[in-house]
Structure formats: C-alpha cells, structure tokens
C-alpha cells in the first residue's frame, strides 16, 4: 500500500525540523549496507528483528523531556540537587534513567559561572537524558570553536553573556558525559515541576541557551 505511512515526508516534521530525504530518494550504498548487516546478524542468530525494534523503541523514548524533568526536580528539591551534583549517574538512576556511560557529571550554572558542553573528539552526549544529539553538535564548526571562542559561539546561538560571567567548557568523552543544570528563571516561585520542566530546552542543558520565563 503506497499511502499507509503515517508521515508525509515533506515540509516540517512534528518536532519542527525539516525532513531530509534519507528514505525517500534512491537507495544508497550505505542504506543497502545497513539492511545487509541487519539481515546477516539475524540470519546468524546474533540478534532478532524484535531486539532491533526494541532498541529503536527505547531510543525513541529518550528525549530532552527526560533531562528537563531532572532539572525541574533539582530546582524544587534541594536534597536531590545536592545528590545530582555529587553523583549525577546515581541521582538520575533514582529517577529511572539508566547509566549509559561510566560517569555523568552535572555542571551547575550560577550568577557568576556559565557552563557549556562539547565533544571535541567525536559526538559523546548524555543520550540517556537528551536523546540523540543535534547535527550541529557533531559537526566541525561547533567542536572546533566552542573551546577556543565560547562567547562568540554562544552569541551565534543568541546567548550573549556579560563579561563578568565566567564561561567553562566541558569536553565529553566516551566514558564521561556532562549535562548543564541551568539557573531557575526568576519569577517562577511556586511553579509545579511540570511547568518548570517545560521551560528547560535541550539547548539549555547543552549550555548554548538559558531557560526564560514566558513574557
């Protein structure tokens, strides 16, 4: 059936990103390689279709909404915040987020310090809390420049920091991942965790943006 696909692969996706023609154009050599590897692994009993489908379903459950819940909890529960800063891996495991790298380090923004995360070597990212990284995180320009001229890079993202605020850049590795705990916006006293979490975007937790209270 040609039209049973639930998605129209044109225009903007439900998450507001343009579709790329990955699956709509002619079959590429690397797509054929993926299919071939998958089938060989199934035929040889290394994995099953169900196992692959489950891995993708799990991947789809992880998104910045997870990290936002952690941040909102840290803003409203000082004891949790203390545990989160002391041992990020253990604290997020409390909330049901499995540990995927050896160590998760939570870096806290303050009125005098702003943190930003990169992986200069590759694409290491706190996937358990944010899902898969955006393209720009994996590309040369961000990886090269954010460690050299972070203020200029942040300004390109629309975040201009006063000179009085120190900027600290954290370089991730396969074994050590970082996530930023942003500052809670003023004027949000008494807000529910759910409403607070809605202010926390992915970019806030990478450190290229800060949460803002809706005007």
């Amino acid at each position: 059936m040609p039209h049973d696909d639930p998605f129209e692969h044109t225009g903007m996706s439900p998450s507001g990103h343009p579709y790329r023609p990955d699956q709509d154009g002619p079959l590429t050599r690397f797509q054929a390689m993926e299919i071939a590897i998958r089938e060989l692994l199934i035929e040889k009993g290394v994995t099953t279709e169900a196992e692959i489908a489950a891995a993708i379903a799990y991947m789809d459950t992880r998104s910045p909404a997870g990290g936002a819940r952690v941040v909102a909890r840290a803003w409203t529960d000082p004891e949790f915040r203390a545990r989160l800063l002391a041992d990020g891996s253990a604290a997020v495991l409390e909330m049901g987020f499995p540990i995927e790298a050896l160590k998760l380090i939570v870096v806290e923004n303050t009125p005098r310090l702003h943190n930003v995360v990169v992986c200069t070597l590759c694409s290491c990212y706190p996937r358990n809390l944010l899902g898969l990284p955006p393209d720009w995180y994996k590309q040369r320009a961000y990886r090269s420049r954010v460690v050299r001229e972070p203020r200029r890079v942040l300004a390109e993202f629309g975040l201009t920091l006063p000179e009085g605020i120190q900027v600290r850049v954290h370089d991730s590795t396969a074994d050590q991942r970082y996530i930023v705990l942003p500052m809670r916006p003023e004027g949000t006293e008494g807000w529910s965790e759910e409403d607070l979490a809605a202010l926390v975007t992915r970019d806030c937790m990478i450190g290229v943006a800060v949460p803002r209270r809706p005007q």
Binding site: M59, P134, A141, R145
Partner: peptide, 26 residues
C-alpha cells in the same frame, strides 16, 4: 578538532531516519 579554526556554526538538525536509527541499534 578542539581549537581549530572553523566557519560559522550551521544549526542544522533533522529527525533521524529509520535507517539511521537502525544503524545506531546495530
């Protein structure tokens, strides 16, 4: 790549295609 000269950041992103997710799953 840290510290190398590079051009402006192209803030591109896309929803990962099924074949890409399958590569990740493999």
């Amino acid at each position: 790549m840290g510290g190398e000269a590079a051009g402006p950041i192209e803030r591109t992103e896309h929803d990962y295609a099924l074949w890409e997710k399958r590569v990740d799953a493999l």
